[in-house]
Design a protein around this nucleic acid. Structure first.
Length: 147
DNA sequence: GGGTAGCCTG
DNA sequence: CAGGCTACCC
């Protein structure tokens, strides 16, 4: 699901697991998962953005996350270990956008500001897509639990 | 006060 | 990932 939405609300999550009896614990756990997912995501982004800068990449337009990139492999291994489904193109677009945002922020020295990531988070949070209805099943939660 | 986001830690 | 803590908002 993370490939579609990085910032799901609790109400959204609830609608996707209709057969789960949500209580305070389960809800907060799901929210926490996505928080952890985001942390990993952004850490990878920053890591590869800084790496690109060290490699003296100057053209951020050439900075993108393709299916054969190392960054993609890292993300896919984390969110889609068993290659249970195909990663949507939209996610690659969002990931590429994120990478460029980190790249230009670091390159222009904005990372000296303690809260320099906030603006990036805000941009990315607006790029969530609708989740396909296929995910509206309990089996999805099982997969989520396993990953 | 409960629900979250963000950050840190193990 | 989970736990714990701070800070913000409704």
């Amino acid at each position: 699901m993370f490939f579609f939405t990085r910032y799901p609300s609790s109400t959204l999550l609830k609608t996707y697991f209709p057969d789960v009896q949500f209580n305070r614990c389960i809800t907060s756990q799901l929210i926490k998962w996505f928080s952890n997912f985001r942390e990993f995501y952004y850490i990878q982004m920053e890591k590869f953005a800084r790496q690109a800068i060290l490699e003296e990449v100057t053209d951020s337009n050439h900075l993108m996350v393709s299916r054969d990139s190392e960054l993609f492999r890292a993300l896919n291994m984390h969110y889609n270990k068993g290659n249970d489904f195909e990663v949507p193109d939209r996610f690659l677009e969002v990931a590429s956008r994120t990478l460029r945002e980190f790249f230009s922020a670091v390159r222009t020295g904005k990372d000296s500001d303690p809260s320099w990531k906030k603006p990036i988070y805000k941009i990315i949070s607006k790029l969530d897509s609708d989740i396909p209805d296929v995910f509206k099943s309990s089996s999805c939660l099982q997969e989520l639990l396993q990953s």
